[in-house]
Design a binder for these strands. Structure first.
Lengths: 194, 194, 194, 194
DNA sequence: GATGAATGAGACTTCATTCAT
DNA sequence: TATGAATGAAGTCTCATTCAT
């Protein structure tokens, strides 16, 4: 399809430009140039600048969910699943650096529609964690005195902060595997010495 | 002092306005109105809009560091210290809601000077955690196979994500104490059932 | 050409507005209105307000040089050439009154780039005089004890002051021909009675 | 007198600042700082920024007239007088460099009140030349077929352009004496070889 | 008279969006 | 569909002037 071709082309350009400059510092003309279309063309596919960001969230997070679910579904032990989630999440940060930057930055903005996203699409992504936790608790793998909602946030927050480090300071001190392992280990076993 | 009066008055106004609208959507005239001064007056105290944000970071984070260090210094056990850090951090989010919002949002922006802040002042704040960890490891309270740098980020990220929840969705499901306790418990003991 | 159309349209508007109000009192919106374009359009063709002035000097003085060289090249006697220069220069002041005003006024400003213009493009214009003088000296038509550089300035200054009179006080007491003749006569023969 | 003390102090500061930056680029605070008074103090002595410029013209040109008249009155031959005027004028440019710059630049502006000055006070100064010419013509020293009004402008313009050279390019190629002599020689005897 | 902090009108400039081609 | 020149609203910042002290 011609239309969806350009739609995605513009979206990819927007990921790149938003990732590099942030939403507010990005110019429509930057995106147009990156996508190799005319400025006006963008308005044939999107209502306005903000709509590009929202569409980007909607569609790209959708893809992430699909990918990460596929990866997790191959494991049966919830402890392993947690590790896989961590590994996959951190890998995405490396592989889709620019998308990760956009999500990191813009998902923190305070626009009402953004908040909506955190409550819907993005929540779906993070809820993968609480599903794992809940199942793990049902299987008596995880402690039942801890609320999955809190663990979910703590676990995601830990990964997210790690990503932020890489985004802000691209020369990694820690590898993806090492980090994924360390973080899931901390959550699974705690940091207190025996 | 008259001068520092207005300096702080403008800064407080900026915290409020930036917190509500975000840096880019905030107008100098919004801050001026909130501070009850003329637009031009702001430029007697700050070089430009961005300088307000930077000064805000510099001065307000400085205060946070002082406060939290004072709170921690009253404990001797590093496990307790971690809990106190969590408790204090989350309390600040509630008490200084607007400042927390600004830090949450704007510290994620991609401006070069912002990155600088994460590397300096803000890093000082987060490094309080790694200091605790390191001392705890020296005292054989904490496992020595985990890198303090990773624990620091994981722990701070967990708290930070929790804060974000409250900022974006002000009707708390979890109390501050409960959350601080849960998160420090997870980190100290892990989530795996015995 | 559409593009150069508007470029020149804006430049003409700028000549008019700068001529009437001076560079500093002229508003971009004045020029835009005069050129019958939107304010923003001006910035599609010029970098900033000052750039309009500089471009104006560059391009318009270029045209003057071409014109006056063409007029002079038709004479062979350097005495006549001097008269033709005077005549042509004063005619330009009448015909391109507004451009003359801009040059009169703004070329005296102290901006660094303006000084640059006096040293380059504008100097080319005035140097036409010293070329005539030098050739006249070589042909033994003019006294050789006088430095062409001084004569050049004296002659140009005389014409320039005359122009100023007309610009500041548009009701001429003296005609162009009379003035050109009188000034070249003074320079050629001096004012001392035989 | 206290009052006139500060009045002149501010005026001197204005000469310096206007001379360096031009009227429009000069700030009231620049002048205040240079005069070592508070910004507000300036408004106790002058109505507004423009009034400083006008007063400056009025008073300083008045002094020049007095000085140059005194110098001329010592000669009896109009040819010598013309030389003395040239010499004195060019000396002033060197000695009161900054005032000369202000006069050079600002007297060319197009404000209505400025035009008024050229027609009154400043005209008085230049009219010294035409008085000399007229008397010279009456004494049969100068040709009577040339209008004093034109000679006046040509002579003043020649000197003025010379001054401009020095102002824009402070490293003089020609000395004051040499220049004054050359210019009066050109006017008295013409440039045509015998 | 003197101060200088405060004011606020207004300028330049940017850039999302439109629309004639 | 696609273009990109043109638009014009709106924001940041400056600075002459005022006025309470």
């Amino acid at each position: 399809m011609k239309k969806s071709d350009k739609h995605q082309k513009i979206l990819n350009a927007a990921i790149k430009v938003f990732g590099q400059k942030g939403f507010f510092n990005a110019r429509i003309s930057d995106i147009a140039k990156e996508a190799d279309v005319a400025d006006g063309t963008i308005y044939l596919y999107f209502n306005n600048k903000y709509d590009i960001l929202l569409t980007l969230f909607e569609e790209e997070i959708g893809k992430l969910i699909t990918e990460i679910r596929a990866a997790i579904s191959q494991k049966s032990d919830q402890r392993e699943m947690l590790y896989i989630f961590a590994l996959h999440h951190l890998r995405l940060v490396i592989e889709k650096k620019e998308l990760a930057e956009v999500l990191q930055m813009e998902l923190r903005q305070s626009g009402e529609s953004i908040k909506e996203y955190r409550r819907t699409k993005f929540a779906d992504y993070v809820n993968i964690i609480s599903e794992i936790i809940r199942t793990g608790q049902e299987n008596n793998i995880f402690r039942r005195d801890l609320k999955p909602g809190i663990i979910k946030r703590a676990f995601f927050g830990a990964l997210d902060e790690m990503s932020r480090l890489w985004i802000l300071n691209p020369s990694h001190k820690y590898t993806v595997e090492e980090s994924a392992e360390a973080i899931s280990d901390i959550f699974l076993n705690g940091i207190v010495a025996d």
